[in-house]
């Protein structure tokens, strides 16, 4: 049988995007005259998109160059977040006492905004780059911590009993049973953490003035080039979406049984 082309799957999203552009145009015409229309945004931004790798000074680069700088920063912060968050989650999941002691601390630290962490990072590290990484890591860590702990707590007793009957060493129990059993939860945590890290990047770059999508956005706001704010916003959204999809694929790869 010939596979039918699913027209709804193409038309409906196009309709959604069209409606979005319409609302954007309407606002720029009737409500906020300072907001560039989609057309004006494109005209003033196309250099950044059509030549995405040009470099003309620290704060004037192609959009993919800025995106790359931001992604590197996020990658560093995210790596830090899961390097600390995964073992911490294991400890919380394994030891009810440790959990009792640290759960209140975590619950208090978790809702603190990156805007609050960044000045603290600057006070501690005195430099903008480590402060940005610190902020990304400490904000992005919690989904990893919480999901890993939950995964460890839900390891089936039947698997643990296999290890007990075989008298596996603690190391073997960890590598052969506990970590593989927890992996799907860990990767759910990693996906959420990466999303969080990407959310934080803008705030971190705005406040530290580092080159990247967030830094560019803030600079262009100060220079009154509003179309470039919209360019950055769209780039941030698209890249965040792509990252989430990518991690979703990795996450499914680790679903066992």
């Amino acid at each position: 049988m010939e596979k039918r082309f699913d027209s709804a799957a193409v038309i409906l999203p196009l309709l959604g995007i069209g409606l979005m552009l319409f609302i954007w145009t309407a606002i720029s015409l009737k409500v906020a005259p300072d907001l560039p229309s989609p057309l004006k945004t494109w005209q003033e931004s196309k250099q950044y998109i059509l030549d995405p790798f040009f470099k003309d000074g620290e704060m004037n680069q192609g959009i993919l160059r800025f995106a790359f700088l931001s992604l590197v920063r996020v990658a560093k912060g995210f790596t830090l977040a899961i390097a600390i968050g995964t073992p911490l989650g294991f400890l919380l999941g394994l030891s009810p006492k440790f959990n009792q002691g640290f759960d209140p601390v975590i619950q208090v630290l978790r809702p603190i905004s990156p805007l609050a962490w960044l000045p603290l990072g600057l006070v501690i590290f005195k430099q903008s780059e480590p402060a940005a990484l610190f902020t990304i890591a400490i904000c992005a860590m919690w989904p990893t911590v919480i999901n890993t702990a939950m995964g460890v707590r839900s390891i089936g007793t039947e698997y643990l009993n296999v290890g007990r009957v075989l008298k596996l060493s603690p190391m073997k129990t960890l590598t052969k049973i506990m970590i593989p059993a927890t992996l799907p939860y860990m990767f759910t945590g990693y996906r959420l953490s990466l999303g969080m890290a990407w959310l934080v990047i803008v705030a971190a770059e705005m406040l530290t003035g580092s080159p990247g999508l967030g830094g560019f956005l803030w600079q262009e706001y100060n220079s009154l080039v509003y179309s470039h704010i919209l360019l950055s916003v769209l780039a941030i959204g698209l890249i965040g979406f792509a990252l989430d999809r990518l991690m979703g694929v990795v996450e499914r790869r680790f679903k066992t049984a």
Partner: peptide, 12 residues
């Protein structure tokens, strides 16, 4: 022990 629910490790 051979358990009622097999208890094979699904990742091995």
């Amino acid at each position: 022990v051979i358990f009622q629910n097999y208890s094979l490790l699904p990742w091995l």
